[in-house]
Every structure is written in C-alpha cells, then in structure tokens.
Design a protein around this nucleic acid. Structure first.
Length: 765
DNA sequence: CAGTGAGCGAGCTTCCGCTTGACTT
C-alpha cells in the first residue's frame, strides 16, 4: 500500500517532484490526455445535447492500466495536472477513469517546482473545477465538429483525404493571401542618393561621414541633374542632435519566441527546435518547453541575479518580471529557462549545446540592466537645393544586457549598421568625396517562414504551444504548402556616381526574389482555401478563435452553459455544411485559359486526381480530352495559355541514335531523355526539354555512359566494387557495403570482399 | 525510378491539444 499517489502530466516532471516529496509519496504520470472523443459517429451525440462519447485510445491502455493499479493501492490520490483548461480536463478524465469521487478528489497545482511550493500545494488541495472542465469540453467538441463536418465536404467536392480545421485552415489562408499579395505586387524603382563627405576638425584631422539624401528620384535624368547640382554645391552642417536612449532586453523565451530565435540565430526548423528542447528538458537542463508564459520563478530570479553579479558586477543586474502579452495565454508553466542558471553550458550534442546557450543567454539577459546609448543625428545642407543629407550613428555608453545577448529581427535587409559619427558643430563645412545614385526596387511583403508563421498565429491567438510544430507539419503533409527554396532572378540596376565634379553612369546586376526555407502555397492549398472562404467564411475568419475563446472564458467562470454555447454555434454552422454539399458547383478551382488555336477547343487548368493538370477539350459526351500535368511551381492562378499549351509539346522525338529513338519527356523526377530502355536526366538550369536538340541529347547520353564505365572499379561474378557519390563501395545482391578505412579499392580481392560483406552482415544482427 | 485522367463501388481519409516513445532510414 502506498500512502500518497500524485499524478502529473509529464514523466520528467514526475521524476523531479518525487525527489522533493520523500518516501511517503509515489509520483506517476498520465503522459498527457488519457481519453478522447471516439472516432465513430463523430464521437458526439449531437441530438442529445452534444453528449460526448469518450474512450481510452488503444495506445493509452497501457498507461491507464498502470494508473489504475497504482490508484487501487494508494490511500490518498492527488491529481497535479497543469493549471489550465486542458489540465483541468485531464484531472476530470483521470477521476472518471480511476473511479474517484469528483467532489472529493484532491486537485493540486504546482506553480514552481521547489520543496516549498510543492508542500504548500499539498497542504491546500481543492476539488476539480467543473466550469473549467466544461470550457475544455466545449473547445474539444467544437474542434471536432468543425474538423469532422468540413473535411468530408472537401473529400466529396475536391479530393479525398483532405482536411480542414479551426487552426490549420487559417494557417493555410495566411500563406495563400500572402502569396496573392506577392503576385499582385508592382515593383517600383527610385534612385537613392548616398554620399561620403570629408570633414576637418579644428586640428585639421579629416574624418568621413556617410549620409543619405532626404529625397529619392524616380527618373535617372532627375538623379543625374541632382548630382550635377551637388557638384557645384557648398555643403555644411545644418544641425546636430544628440539624444540619449535606452534599449531593454527581450522577455524570457516562450515556445513561440524560442522557435523564432532558434530559426533566426541557429537556422533550426520549428520541429527541430522542439526535438532538441525536449532532450534538454528530459535531461533536467531546462524547464518545460511548451509554454506561453514569460514568467520566471522566484528561485530563477534569485539564481540569475547571483550569476550576473558574480560574473559582471552589481550594476549589470536588474531583476524584472515580464507580463505575458500573447492572446489567450493560459500560463500553466514558467518561461523556458535553464533549470540551473549557474550552468552557463551543458554537455550533449552540438545542437543541444547551441540551443541551451541561446536559452541561457536570453534568460540571463532578461535580468540585466538596460543598455544606454547615445544617438547622434546630423543634417547636412546644400546652398543650392532644399534637399538635405542625413546621417545617424549610435554609440553604446553602457552595454548592460547587450554584453550577453541581443534579439534578432525577421527583416533580412541587413542595412542597420550603426556608423560612428565624428564630433561636429553646426555650420562646419564639408566636401564630398563621392556621391552615388543607385536604383533601388521596392520589395513585396516577405513569404512566411515556419517561425514567422508561428509568430503570426500566436498574435492571432490561434493554436497553442503544443500544436505550433504539429500544425506546420500537417499543412505540409496535406500538400497545402511546401517549404521551398527559389534561386531568384537577375535584373540590371543603374548607378550614377559623382566624383571630382564628373558624373559617370554604369550598371550592375543584382539578384532578387531569392528565397530560402519559405512556405509556398500549392495549387491544392489555394483551391481548398478558396472553397473554405466561399462556404465557411466564419470559420476561416482571423478573429474566429478569439471570439469563441471569449465564450470559453465565460463558460469557465460559470456565466454561460457549455452545451448552450455549442448549440448556438452548431445551428448556423451545420446549415452552411448542408448548403455547401447541396451546391451544384462543377469544376471547383478550375480556370479557363482560352482556346487552343490548333483544335479550337477550350483549355482549362484544374486540380485533377493526380495533381494540377491542363486539359484541352472536354470529356463530356464521350469526347476524348487531352491532359498534361503542370510543372512544379506553376500555379493554376497565374499560368498563361501559352505556358499551358507548351505542356502538350512533350514527349518529343528528337531522332535516332544507334538505330533507336531518342525521346525527351518530363516525369516525376523532372525532365529526362529515354533511349533504348535507359533514362538520362537533363541538367537542371542548363537543358530545357522543349528546346533541346539531338546533338545535345547524344552528348548527355555519352557523358553518362562514360561515368558508368568509371563507376566499376572491380568485378568478381556478382560482387561489384563501385565508385559512388560517397566514394568507393561494394555491391552484392542489391545491398551496399562500406569499405574499411585505409583500404585501397583497386587492390581488393574477391576473398577480401566476401570478408567485408560477412562482417557487415554480422554487426547488423 | 521515369504517369496517370473509363466507370462502379466498398472502405477509408478528417479535427485540436495534452504527453512521449517505438518504429525505420
């Protein structure tokens, strides 16, 4: 018999708590939720006032059985799930599954994991808060209704296995709408004027000032006349202002800000950040990594202060507590911080070390003094023009928290260099060394990265720390969006320079539109989004979650009844589902491009069974239509008639080589040449399947044959020693074997090969 | 490795939020 059984959500938490509680207490974990709505019949008896049908899922049976065993052996049971809506529901489900009396079940919460906090909690148990539980039930049931009633509409109207939901559909909408802004963006250019001035101080020492003109010029001629004006102008200092300022450290990490910074500073994907953080948490090195709170425990504040004072001195320390800003935050946990702030570094993998370092610095910096800066702005006037040249510089007078850490930003323009401004006074004269007018293009709004999408969702109050990473995975798995790179395109920009009274013009080529790890909407994502916007505008509204969260809050304080709230939502919602199903909207998401000049038939593009496709003619009335798949990166929305028609020009027969046809076509893995049963890939960015000729095709075939010849180093019956991408290896029965270090492949014998194969097979077992 | 788009019909897909492994490459 155990005296006291404490149930928490996380096994790592169970382990640490058990240390504080001593022998009288046995601490176990539920591993999160233990019951969920059944998948049969939507899991809700809608007619019967939304009665939920809960069941223990198969993969939870083992945990639940162990909990039952422990519970039946315990005198007292304490349920210590997290102090938020979901935690309260977990407590209630536990009580139900373990046959506990709801009114007498001891419910406790830990605000921080210290001996004092834990014994305080044990001394003041409460009972389960059914209002809070009901607000969770409302949340759960509503999400199921939305997801399981809309998704089947998509299967019927668009494609099987698609999905829609309160969170994922808004995430997709954000990406689709951003893409449309980019598509419709009209880039404009103007000439930006920058100057290098020389100024002499009283001692005759020269220094350089970099400044930008207050005006930009749309036309090259205008920029040129301005430079000519500069050539004959007298410049002097118009004004000097020196302003003191402060910079304050960023709040400690939440899940969302950790994902953003780990992406910006370390290049981690959102999922990668969470996996590395999980490792650190399980090793007891950081606090819980799924949190929306910026709060630090008293102990953490104290320990951080000790570290700062010891390492940097008293004046670098400033204890502060941060208010959580994000909408709908439930603050069941602390901010993400080092468990022991006096450990500035940890052992582990490279990524664990890097992420820990980031968390340590952010936490410590958050408890450090403001940085003090001095910002100098000067204006340089011209005697023959109202235009001024402005320069600004910043000097850090006291570094404060900047000694340890400064937050990065999302804009990657990299033009925030803070120059040092020499000491100058009003009316001092300057001479120009060089003045440049360069053509600058305006840029469209940036595409989302995984991390900036998380930031946006958090701002809208959509999704929770535990779901940001899975949501991003889901919308990619459904094919709605794809994380991609784009090489960018080149364009010419004009440059005018004024030096020694002479204006010269030149041009330079710049790259624009280069993208790395950005989220691009795919055709199916756009079609689904438009369908949802047409039929379920209230669900994909950016304020929908915030609005229903208000209702959940009212349920949580007992102001309204949860099933009434669901009833009010479901009535109109279900009507829109019915209407969407009844609508006779053929060809959802298809676009008519025009008429094929050869056949006179209509050309359309749509999402077909196997993806986006162009179609000439119709299949109606037994007609045969012709089909051609769209290329990757071609959008139904933007493809032109010419581009679509070109898709039908493949496959092409280029002629003959060695009495066999040479065919060029494009397949699953891009464009290729087919010749006597063999395939040869075209070179990316070099060869175009629509224009390639026989000569070049033969060249590609010969090249590959040559490479194949060099591939075989040795041959013993069915054993081959081959040259691969990663160096020489042995191949037998379609299995590959690595060569031992320092082994010369040219001197291998058959016996040695067999020996290597045998050894490799042994170690595998 | 290297497309496909006839038609019928059975059976399946799907949500969000709380937790970790048990799998394979």
């Amino acid at each position: 018999m155990i005296e006291n059984l404490v149930i928490v959500e996380s096994p790592a938490k169970a382990k640490t708590i058990e240390k504080y509680l001593g022998k009288e207490f046995h601490v176990v974990s539920s591993f999160g939720h233990i019951r969920d709505l059944s998948k049969k019949n939507i899991g809700i008896d809608i007619e019967n006032n939304f009665e939920p049908d809960y069941e223990v899922p198969k993969e939870k049976l083992k945990v639940v059985n162990e909990l039952r065993k422990s519970a039946s052996n315990a005198k007292n049971i304490w349920i210590a799930s997290d102090e938020d809506r979901e935690g309260e529901a977990i407590a209630w489900h536990l009580a139900a599954v373990l046959d506990l009396d709801i009114d007498n079940t001891k419910r406790i919460v830990f605000h921080e994991i210290t001996k004092e906090a834990i014994s305080n909690a044990i001394n003041k148990p409460r009972t389960i808060d059914m209002n809070l539980v009901n607000s969770q039930q409302a949340r759960r049931v509503l999400d199921r209704l939305v997801g399981f009633e809309i998704s089947p509409v998509l299967w019927k109207k668009i494609q099987p296995a698609l999905s829609a939901g309160r969170v994922q559909s808004v995430a997709v909408r954000l990406i689709v709408e951003r893409e449309r802004e980019i598509i419709s963006f009209q880039s404009e250019s103007a000439f930006r004027i920058t100057a290098l001035f020389i100024i002499k101080n009283d001692k005759g020492e020269e220094s350089v000032i970099k400044a930008e003109a207050s005006k930009r010029f749309r036309k090259e001629e205008e920029a040129k006349s301005f430079l000519e004006l500069c050539a004959s102008s007298n410049f002097e200092i118009d004004s000097v202002t020196v302003k003191p300022g402060t910079r304050v450290p960023a709040a400690p990490f939440t899940t969302s800000t950790l994902q953003q910074e780990a992406y910006r500073k370390l290049g981690f994907s959102v999922a990668q950040t969470m996996a590395v953080a999980q490792k650190l948490y399980e090793a007891g090195k950081i606090t819980y990594m799924r949190t929306d709170s910026t709060n630090l425990s008293k102990l953490a504040l104290l320990k951080s202060k000790e570290v700062i004072v010891a390492q940097y001195g008293e004046k670098y320390s400033k204890t502060r507590q941060y208010k959580t800003k994000s909408k709908g935050a439930q603050e069941a946990h602390e901010a993400i911080r080092p468990t022991y702030p006096d450990n500035a570094a940890v052992t582990g993998s490279q990524n664990e070390k890097k992420l820990y370092d980031l968390i340590w610095k952010r936490t410590i910096a958050s408890q450090m003094a403001d940085a003090e800066v001095e910002r100098t702005t000067i204006a340089i006037g011209m005697n023959n023009s109202p235009v001024t040249f402005n320069a600004s510089g910043e000097v850090v007078k006291f570094d404060g928290f900047l000694k340890v850490y400064s937050e990065s930003t999302d804009d990657d323009s990299g033009e925030s260099e803070k120059a040092l401004i020499p000491e100058v006074r009003k009316n001092m004269p300057l001479t120009y060394k060089k003045i440049t007018a360069d053509q600058r293009y305006t840029t469209p709004p940036p595409r989302y990265t995984e991390a900036s999408l998380v930031k946006k969702l958090e701002e809208l109050g959509i999704g929770r720390p535990s779901t940001y990473a899975p949501t991003i995975t889901t919308i990619q798995n459904r094919g709605y969006v794809l994380r991609e790179e784009r090489p960018g395109e080149k364009r010419d920009v004009r440059i005018l320079t004024l030096e020694k009274g002479v204006v010269n013009s030149s041009k330079r080529s710049e790259l624009f539109g280069k993208e790395k790890a950005k989220l691009f909407p795919q055709n199916i994502g756009i079609v689904v989004n438009d369908f949802l916007m047409d039929n379920f505008p209230e669900i994909v509204d950016y304020h929908f979650t915030a609005a229903i969260e208000e209702q959940f809050d009212k349920i949580a304080v007992g102001k309204i009844e949860w099933t009434n709230m669901l009833g009010e939502f479901y009535g109109p919602f279900h009507e829109s589902v019915k209407k969407a199903l009844e609508k006779r909207d053929r060809k959802i998401g298809s676009r008519t491009l025009g008429v094929d000049p050869k056949s006179g038939e209509e050309v359309i593009v749509k999402v077909g069974r196997f993806g986006p496709v162009a179609q000439i003619g119709t299949t109606e009335g037994g007609n045969k239509a012709r089909f051609a798949s769209l290329h990757k990166n071609q959008l139904i929305e933007t493809i032109t008639l010419e581009e679509a028609l070109q898709l039908f020009n493949l496959p092409r027969n280029l002629g003959e080589l060695e009495e066999n046809e040479v065919i060029v076509d494009t397949g699953k893995y891009g464009p290729y040449i087919r010749h006597s049963g063999k395939f040869y890939s075209l070179k990316k960015g070099v060869d175009d399947p629509y224009t390639i000729d026989l000569g070049r095709a033969i060249e590609i075939i010969r090249e590959k044959r040559e490479a194949e010849k060099q591939k075989v180093i040795k041959e013993f019956d069915d054993i081959l020693v081959l040259n691969g991408r990663y160096g020489p290896y042995i191949s037998k029965d379609k299995k590959n074997y690595r060569l031992p270090k320092g082994c010369d492949p040219k001197k291998l014998t058959k016996e040695e090969c067999l020996d290597i194969i045998e050894k490799a097979n042994k170690t595998k077992k």
